[in-house]
């Protein structure tokens, strides 16, 4: 028998917060992306935990979709980054503030 749900949920909460804080603090676009992945993983962990707690496979199905969407997001996001880096050298998201209206 595995540990109770709250342990996993707490871990997921910590992971999510770390990802969120990282997203707010780091300026490197790629690292910011990684922080988003951390947050997604926290959510995945929550979903699997609830899937076990509620004895419902739906949670795991949702994780599957999250994985696929994350992959799509990274592909497009990195495509955008590559396109941007052709014009500007540098890896900070702050450089992109020139895009404001």
């Amino acid at each position: 028998m595995s540990l109770g749900g709250p342990y996993y949920l707490t871990l997921a909460a910590v992971l999510f917060t770390i990802g969120g804080v990282g997203l707010l603090l780091r300026r490197n676009v790629l690292v910011m992306f990684m922080c988003v992945e951390l947050m997604l993983n926290a959510v995945n962990l929550t979903l699997v935990t609830f899937s076990r707690m509620l004895n419902d496979i739906g949670g795991q199905s949702l994780v599957f979709f999250v994985l696929v969407v994350a992959a799509a997001e990274v592909v497009v996001g990195l495509g955008i980054i590559v396109a941007i880096f052709r014009r500007r050298k540098g890896a900070t998201a702050d450089d992109l503030h020139i895009l404001k209206g």
Binding site: G20, L23, L24, L25, R27, M32, A93, D94, L96, H97, I98, L99, K100, G101
Partner: peptide
């Protein structure tokens, strides 16, 4: 209102958070 749009992604992320 335009001043709210700083162009800094992290500002927006902060608002979301």
């Amino acid at each position: 209102l335009r001043r709210l749009q700083t162009g800094y992604v992290r500002n927006y992320a902060l608002a979301i958070a």
